[in-house]
Design a protein around this nucleic acid. Structure first.
Ligand code: FES
Ligand code: FES
Lengths: 151, 151
DNA sequence: AGCTTTCGTAACCAGGGAAGTTGCGAGGGA
DNA sequence: TCCCTCGCAACTTCCCTGGTTACGAAAGCT
């Protein structure tokens, strides 16, 4: 339980939902992600609030995509799951009057900010449709080399 | 997850040590960092093992710089404190046979790897001497504008 | 109406990692 | 010898994500 897996999980489930007809229940999604329904609802709440998915109660209810995968970027999902902190590394203390600390923070935070900007730019440039396409490619490739006994 | 402050802390203390004549005890360093001596020794152990600082026991003992600040980069210090994980974000599960998961991981990990490479490159390009110089600049600047009442 | 399904949410526990704390031992100078 | 200072192990504390339980609300089915 160390790394924040919410982004990856939501990407995974969104792609599955695209290939899935009709609503998927939290229960079904939970089984796909090897977790449990409450965690699914908790995490998907952000996506719902941002309008990427819809949820419906009662018989035949569950989760459905509200947008085309082409209109959802990794960055959108990252934001929808609450923009979790990107880095583990951080400043020691906010030592206001300490000039050494200021110089250190300026250097570290500067590098961190650059790396974060790059990361988010990459996230913003990839849509879920791209991931789905990559999945298709892998799928076709896996079928192509039909393992006779051991994959 | 709480932020790992070891890198920033060690940068801070190394610059201080450069401006400090004679050994600095863990006690003194702990006061500078607003922490306690055991944490200082624990964190500095890595720097000592990598040969960036030396420690000596007994009267007049303490920590001394073993290298010029120009020969120490942020990357060196990052490595010396144990190369803590850079990112909080991580993959959901290693789902070997799951192609969706593979596609997701490829995209996320790829972006993460790029960002990490950039970050470490930046760290590698900055020496402690650069930080010290930045500190000097800030110091001179602060003296220059002598705030009469409010900065 | 009543039952069942499914989401919504609060409340709590579990696990992991950094930091903080305590205690004792080792080494070196006065 | 005595005191200072590091070395290190063990324990506690704190925060955060994930897992679990419990109950309520909405919506369909009979
Ligand atoms: S559960 Fe991930 S590919 Fe189906
Ligand atoms: S404690 Fe002196 S500048 Fe940081």
């Amino acid at each position: 339980m160390r790394r924040d897996a919410r982004l990856s999980r939501m990407l995974h489930v969104l792609i599955h939902m695209d290939r899935h007809d009709g609503p998927a229940t939290s229960e079904v999604i939970a089984r796909m992600l090897a977790t449990n329904p409450v965690v699914v609802r908790r995490t998907m709440a952000g996506l719902r609030d941002q309008g990427f998915v819809r949820s419906e109660k009662g018989h035949g209810g569950g989760w459905t995509l509200a947008r085309d995968l082409r209109e959802i970027t990794l960055l959108d999902v990252y934001r929808a799951v609450g923009r979790p902190p990107v880095f583990v590394l951080g400043p020691a203390i906010d030592h206001p009057g300490c000039l050494v600390e200021q110089a250190v923070n300026a250097a570290v935070d500067g590098a961190l900010a650059e790396a974060e900007a790059l990361l988010l730019a990459r996230f913003g440039a990839v849509t879920l449709a791209d991931l789905a396409r990559d999945f298709d490619r892998r799928f076709a490739e896996a079928k192509g080399r039909r393992p006779p006994a051991a994959g």
